[in-house]
Simulated scan of single mutants.
Amino acid sequence: MFDIDRYFEHLGYTGGRERSADNLRELHKKHMMTVPFDNSRNAPKGLAIWDDVDAGVDAFHEALIVEGRGGICHEHSGLFRGALLELGYDVSIVSAGVRGANDQFGPDLEHMMNVVRLDGEQWLVDVGFAGPSFIEPVRISPEVQSQYGFDYRVVESGDYLVLERRTRAKDWHAVYRFTLTERKLTEWKAIASGENDDPVWHWAGEMIAAGTLIYGRAYDNGQLLLVGRRYLRAEDGQEHVRVLAKTDEYQAVIRNVLLQDA
């Protein structure tokens, strides 16, 4: 069963429980620092990663908090959404298509996150994106918002809103695009069951099934991301990337990201 006290204890969250932007920011950051992204259990599943999308907050709490494992987007999103709903926040599920290496966006249901409406503003809340992205929620606004040396904004592009990020050394680039259309978990279940026969999903599933492992976690002023052997550390507005050729170094980084050797 989901236990918000145990969840807070696991995160080391001692902030208030009233609805506020400050509490939302702190809780978001604590989750990202404490519960890692880890697709190693799901990488071989292909489109079957969506089979348990509706497993519920109790199941996600058991896996990520009680068992102390990392998870993927819908597990993180579902757990965090359950906590916010218990605290009385106004939360909805939205989806995004992630920008790929070719600068093209994936399908609209490629990624799951949440939107929180609070004091007349809308906040993009996403604790389940491997990154690098943002550590604290981002207001859905074209106004530039800075976090730990990185800048963020949400701009309109045709029928979509696009989350953009900027390092100190580079211009703006898109992270993903989304709409504010509220999504239902049954939409992802349709993908898992094959009812959604968009060939893009088959291509994406094959890529996932190829076994690329992804690990990610935030720390106090930055983020760690390991995609295959490519290791990225984002800190103070800068990104440092290297390839981990040695197996012992690769394993050490995984342990660090998963908080097993931090």
Rank of each mutant, 00 (worst) to 15 (best):
D261A: 06
A174N: 02
L224W: 10
H202G: 04
G70P: 11
Y152E: 07
H76N: 14
R41T: 10
V115W: 03
T212I: 08
T179Q: 07
H202T: 01
E249N: 00
Q145L: 10
A43T: 03
E26F: 03
G158E: 08
F8W: 05
A96R: 02
V53K: 06
D108I: 01
R168L: 14
T14V: 10
L213H: 07
N42R: 06
L47G: 01
F178W: 06
D90E: 02
A63E: 09
V91L: 00
V138P: 10
D103R: 05
H111R: 07
G131I: 03
R25N: 13
L64K: 10
G15I: 04
D108E: 13
P132N: 12
S157I: 00
V125L: 02
L24Q: 11
Y219K: 09
E18T: 01
E143D: 11
G205D: 03
Q238K: 15
E75A: 13
H76Q: 05
W172K: 14
K30M: 10
R99Y: 10
G120Q: 02
L11T: 09
L84M: 02
G78R: 05
H28K: 13
W50H: 07
L87I: 01
K189Y: 03
D159A: 07
P44R: 15
V94A: 00
Y250M: 02
Y7C: 13
V253C: 01
D22E: 15
Y13W: 12
L87N: 05
L24N: 05
I72S: 15
H76D: 13
D126M: 11
Q251T: 01
N114S: 01
E110V: 08
Y215C: 01
D119N: 05
D22V: 09
D261V: 03
E67T: 11
T179A: 03
M207E: 15
V94T: 03
A21P: 09
R183D: 00
W172S: 07
Q238F: 14
A252N: 00
D51E: 14
